[in-house]
């Protein structure tokens, strides 16, 4: 199992705090703490899509999905599970199609 929470925290610290972890907790609101500015969400989404090969829909762009390391982790895990489920689904379907 990948240490998604560690990876995400590391990205937030490196990218938005330039390596200076100020000790914020994984549950802290990144908007509230001033960690993320208006373009920060776009950087975040771009990172998630590239790193985990997932698609973040416009309707996903909500603070309840993205506004803390804990929420981000949950959101990413959910997306990965969905992807896996869809992938397995299509893998099962493939032979059917090939017949």
């Amino acid at each position: 199992m990948r240490q998604i929470d560690h990876e995400l925290r590391r990205f937030v610290v490196d990218n938005f705090l330039y390596g200076r972890d100020n000790g914020f907790s994984d549950d802290d609101s990144m908007l509230g703490m001033g960690i993320i500015d208006s373009t920060g969400t776009l950087e975040l989404v771009s990172f998630l899509e590239k790193k985990y090969d997932i698609v973040v829909e416009d309707s996903d762009l909500l603070p309840q999905n993205l506004d803390s390391v804990a929420r981000l982790t949950q959101f990413t895990r959910r997306k990965l599970e969905q992807k896996q489920a869809t992938g397995e689904c299509s893998a099962r379907r493939e032979p059917v199609h090939s017949e």
Binding site: Y18, S38, T39
Partner: peptide
């Protein structure tokens, strides 16, 4: 802080710096 500046420069070099900050 040299390490932080280095990370910032890296963001620019790799085209990841898109924000006003």
């Amino acid at each position: 802080d040299f390490a932080s500046v280095n990370r910032l420069v890296d963001k620019f070099k790799t085209g990841r710096a898109i924000g006003v900050k």
